Computed example of a mutant assay.
Amino acid sequence: MTLAPLLNAAPAIPLHAFAAMAAFVLGVVQLAAPKGTLPHRTIGWIWVALMAIVAASSFWIHQIRLVGPFGPIHLLSIFTLVMLPLAVWRAHTHRVADHRRIMILMFIGALVVAGLFTLLPGRIMHHVIFGS
């Protein structure tokens, strides 16, 4: 395992990858830890910021092009940027079930499922984890 392929990539790619990895770790903590506490809220705000960075940075990554410079992952990024403030607002208005549902959906869809696609052969993270 070597970080060289990731660190040698265009600047948006390592930013995107490291923010996604940090969001994944914090997301696991959030799902396991007690809810409604000050640490939950604090880590939650950090997670939201990381997810915004992950989604926004994807618009500078154009490895898979289907429509001009954009691919299907960019639809997920738009979805994430729309749903993040909605999920925060749901928590703020004490609609906890809606907040939980949106956050779990984003964690699973935007981090876990999309993250698994980065491990496909030919992708940078495949080279990082499995070598060339």
Rank of each mutant, 00 (worst) to 15 (best):
residue 60 W to C: 03
residue 38 L to D: 09
residue 57 S to G: 13
residue 13 I to D: 05
residue 18 F to M: 14
residue 11 P to Q: 03
residue 97 A to H: 15
residue 41 R to T: 04
residue 98 D to L: 05
residue 85 P to R: 00
residue 75 L to C: 02
residue 35 K to G: 02
residue 49 A to R: 13
residue 4 A to H: 12
residue 10 A to Y: 07
residue 93 T to G: 13
residue 14 P to F: 04
residue 103 M to Y: 07
residue 96 V to M: 05
residue 115 G to L: 07
residue 55 A to W: 09
residue 88 V to H: 02
residue 113 V to D: 03
residue 83 M to Y: 10
residue 28 V to L: 13
residue 117 F to I: 08
residue 20 A to N: 09
residue 62 H to M: 10
residue 71 G to W: 12
residue 114 A to M: 15
residue 94 H to M: 07
residue 129 I to S: 06
residue 23 A to C: 07
residue 75 L to V: 08
residue 122 G to F: 13
residue 57 S to F: 13
residue 69 P to Q: 15
residue 17 A to T: 14
residue 104 I to A: 02
residue 44 G to Q: 01
residue 103 M to T: 07
residue 67 V to I: 13
residue 95 R to Q: 08
residue 70 F to K: 06
residue 54 V to I: 06
residue 72 P to E: 12
residue 132 S to F: 12
residue 66 L to G: 08
residue 127 H to E: 15
residue 90 R to C: 02
residue 115 G to W: 05
residue 25 V to E: 07
residue 53 I to V: 15
residue 41 R to E: 05
residue 57 S to M: 13
residue 54 V to N: 05
residue 67 V to W: 10
residue 47 W to P: 04
residue 110 A to D: 06
residue 36 G to P: 00
residue 129 I to G: 02
residue 74 H to Q: 14
residue 116 L to C: 13
residue 56 A to H: 08
residue 63 Q to N: 11
residue 22 A to P: 04
residue 63 Q to T: 12
residue 63 Q to R: 11
residue 108 I to R: 04
residue 89 W to P: 00
residue 67 V to Y: 12
residue 48 V to Y: 10
residue 48 V to H: 10
residue 35 K to H: 08
residue 28 V to S: 06
residue 39 P to H: 11
residue 40 H to Q: 06
residue 36 G to L: 02
residue 74 H to Y: 12
residue 88 V to S: 02
residue 29 V to P: 04
residue 26 L to R: 00
residue 39 P to R: 12
residue 3 L to S: 08
residue 40 H to L: 10
residue 99 H to C: 01
residue 127 H to S: 12
residue 78 I to F: 15
residue 69 P to G: 09
residue 126 H to K: 04
residue 117 F to H: 15
residue 66 L to R: 09
residue 124 I to P: 00
residue 75 L to A: 06
residue 95 R to I: 03
residue 13 I to Y: 08
residue 24 F to T: 00
residue 27 G to Y: 02
residue 96 V to C: 03
residue 67 V to Q: 07
residue 31 L to M: 15
residue 29 V to K: 10
residue 124 I to Q: 04
residue 24 F to Q: 01
residue 22 A to E: 06
residue 27 G to L: 04
residue 73 I to E: 11
residue 128 V to W: 06
residue 93 T to F: 15
residue 111 L to H: 13
residue 122 G to I: 04
residue 4 A to G: 11
residue 41 R to L: 10
residue 130 F to I: 09
residue 121 P to H: 03
residue 43 I to C: 06
residue 39 P to V: 13
residue 81 L to Q: 11
residue 96 V to P: 01
residue 122 G to K: 03
residue 121 P to G: 01
residue 83 M to V: 06
residue 102 I to R: 07
residue 54 V to P: 03
residue 64 I to M: 14
residue 36 G to W: 05
residue 16 H to A: 03
residue 76 L to F: 15
residue 64 I to K: 12
residue 58 S to H: 03
residue 129 I to F: 13
